[in-house]
């Protein structure tokens, strides 16, 4: 009976140590392939853009891995506007954050792809001006009227995202390979 109790206790102590959770990611591998893109149509915080809006990017250079073509120059991929920061008082710049790039045949879990673009940051001269104007009563508050620059992403801007082919694939985050009309996949 004692042996049984001892065995049970041993099991209780060791079972937690044996239990090994498998993480859905493994960032061990450092090899990455940069994918350079440019937006197809200019977007700006000045225009009517909204969070969650789909935007399209064009691949600038062919992307190959292990002798296979992943993306061809001119291919169009979708992404989403994640967050929009509007410009604020005292020269606070606007900002656009883009993510959720949908590349056929590539899992989102294998991409480091957050891209952000800011407008002109006028705080650098607005704050010194504000502090120097505080000598005159209420004059410092006038700089509140100066707003920061709008954020724009132009077709000439180069957006680089990174593809880590050896990172784990999270099947839920994979974009199925899109087939062309003639049956060949877009990534072939």
């Amino acid at each position: 009976m004692n042996k049984l109790t001892a065995l049970f206790l041993l099991f209780l102590f060791t079972c937690k140590a044996c239990y090994c959770e498998t993480l859905p990611y493994n960032f061990y591998d450092t090899f990455c392939i940069p994918i350079t893109l440019s937006i197809t149509e200019e977007i700006s915080t000045k225009d009517n853009i909204y969070e969650g809006q789909s935007v399209q990017f064009k691949v600038r250079k062919n992307v190959r891995h292990n002798g296979q073509s992943i993306l061809k120059s001119g291919d169009v991929i979708n992404a989403k506007i994640e967050t929009i920061v509007t410009s604020g008082m005292n020269g606070f710049p606007a900002e656009i954050i883009i993510d959720d790039f949908q590349i056929p045949g590539i899992c989102n879990s294998q991409l480091i792809s957050t891209y952000n673009k800011k407008g002109q940051n006028r705080c650098l001269w607005v704050y010194p001006l504000k502090w120097s104007l505080t000598l005159i009563p209420f004059a410092g508050s006038l700089t509140n009227l100066i707003k920061g620059g709008h954020a724009k992403i132009r077709p000439k801007d180069i957006v680089t995202i990174y593809y880590y082919p050896n990172w784990k694939e999270d099947k839920d985050l994979c974009i199925e390979d899109i087939k062309n009309e003639n049956g060949t996949s877009l990534s072939e």
């Binding site: 969070e51 967050t83 920061v85 604020g88 008082m89 005292n90 606070f92 900002e95 954050i97 940051n121 705080c123 650098l124 704050y127």
Partner: peptide, 21 residues
């Protein structure tokens, strides 16, 4: 450092951004 100062000074603006992110 500049962005950190901006966040500290424009806390109202950035509060909304932080919530969304």
């Amino acid at each position: 450092s500049i962005d950190a100062i901006q966040v500290a000074l424009s806390s109202k603006k950035f509060e909304t951004v932080a919530d969304k992110r």
